[in-house]
Design a protein around this nucleic acid. Structure first.
Length: 417
DNA sequence: CGTCCACGTCTAC
DNA sequence: TAGACCTGGACGG
């Protein structure tokens, strides 16, 4: 469960489950983990957590002891220790009894209770990592959810950085500026504003103010914001009910936090609320192509000018290792797209592939009905906005029109040229 | 059974 | 800009 919202929900989970619980002894690591040992042991300590972007920090705090001398002799901690954890693609926390330890529980903290319980950092793929006595990774930027002001200022004041030469969808994954945004969030955010994913990032971001004028506005109605029609330059007309791109990098993740559940976690029972929340990522009827790093970008409509010509894919990798020298036959697969057209106008359509049957890789609803999207046409019709919670769930089964609609329009494609 | 795909970094040619 | 690093679920044959 890896994007900002999931990491934050994980920290809330730890604080809730471990409130009042006393832990004891050494912190234990699985045999198979290549991460460092955590040199901490204490007769009695507590655990609390905080999150920042895509990292969680656990703080182990020794409880007061009547006999400091004894403690020191026993090699016990008397000072708190912070452990900074990154979740990789599959990390999460679980608090269980000792005999219910989840498979892949790579870092464990034991409680002092008698049927003892264990707080585990579970990580099936082991892409996650931790650092004892750690600090927030220095090259990661401010948290998009809880350090919004500095996050925004940092982006706006660094637009000349070459990092912004790339397509906006790829820049959104750059943790130096967007700490907490991941693959599903970038799709949902760009979708809400109808921004083509492969448009140069700087083009989309320049003109945004370092201060979010939206912040102190009420529910903000159709605040249409003027536009200093005064010839040249940018006209700020941002804002609307939604806000600009940077603001959505803050509010959209918070929506997931407010869903409660566990965010992206197909195995979870309350995963359906999250699935119902998704409007674009893995949604039927949406398009998807691999970006320049081989990550799947989900979107609707125009891919934008910087879309990969020949959708790359780090797939097509390991080819038989038999022996035969000749096998530079290695890749093919999605190169299936026609080659037609060619120069002149960049008509896409060859790059975008619409899900034929079921998209692999996107978790199906276990047991329940799948989410159907408006396959026929894209809804342009204003629906009744009804924000609020996604408590409904269920959303009637056979509803063919339960999908994502709600186009807000107003793209604000500024830029000069 | 085998292939493809997955919420993310990392480092090496 | 490729791989490497991993496990496991969904599909296809």
């Amino acid at each position: 469960m890896p994007e900002g919202p999931e990491l934050h929900l994980a920290s809330l989970y730890v604080n809730k489950m471990c409130a009042g619980v006393v832990f004891t002894g050494p912190v234990r690591k699985s045999e198979v983990s290549k991460n460092p040992d955590v040199p901490f042991t204490c007769e009695a300590y507590r655990i609390t957590a905080t999150s920042r972007g895509k990292e969680v920090k656990l703080t182990l705090t020794p409880m007061k002891s009547d006999d400091p001398k004894e403690r020191v002799k026993a090699g016990q901690a008397d000072q708190p220790m912070d452990i900074v954890i990154r979740f990789g693609m599959s990390g999460y926390f679980r608090f269980t009894t000792e005999d219910e330890l989840p498979k892949h529980a790579h870092l464990r903290f034991y409680s002092k209770e008698t049927p003892c319980r264990v707080l585990s950092f579970v990580d099936a793929r082991r892409f996650g990592s931790w650092q004892p006595n750690g600090t927030w990774q220095s090259d990661r930027g401010p948290c998009i959810m809880f350090e919004y002001k500095s996050f925004r200022e940092k982006v706006v004041s660094h637009l000349s950085d070459r990092a912004f030469d790339k397509p906006i969808c790829e820049v959104l994954l750059n943790q130096k500026y967007f700490n907490g945004i991941g693959n599903y969030l970038r799709a949902e955010i760009l979708f809400r504003l109808n921004i083509p994913p492969f448009v140069p990032a700087r083009t989309v971001l320049e003109g945004l103010e370092s201060e979010d004028l939206c912040e102190n506005e009420k529910p903000v109605k159709n605040e249409t914001t003027d536009t200093k029609t005064s010839d040249g330059a940018k006209q700020k007309r941002v804002k609307g009910e939604t806000g600009d791109l940077l603001r959505l990098c803050h509010t959209v993740p918070l929506e997931v936090v407010n869903l409660g559940g566990k965010g992206y976690d197909p195995q979870k029972t309350d995963y359906s609320d999250f699935k119902a929340w998704l409007q674009c990522y893995c949604v039927d009827g949406m398009k998807s192509i691999g970006d320049h790093n081989g990550r799947t970008m989900w979107f609707k409509g125009d891919p934008g000018p910087m879309a990969p010509k020949d959708s790359k894919s780090p797939k097509a990798k390991k080819r038989a290792k038999k022996e035969d020298g000749h096998d530079y036959y290695t890749d093919k697969k999605k190169v299936a797209s026609k080659r037609s057209e060619s120069t002149s106008k960049k008509k896409q359509e060859s790059v975008t592939k619409i899900p034929k049957k079921e998209k692999k890789g996107c978790p199906k609803e276990a047991g329940t009905k799948r989410r159907k999207a408006v396959k026929s046409r894209e809804v342009t019709e204003p629906q009744h906005e009804k924000r609020s919670t996604a408590r409904k769930r269920k959303s009637s089964s056979a509803e063919p029109t339960a999908g994502p609609q709600r186009r807000r329009g107003r793209v604000t494609r500024q830029n000069s040229k």
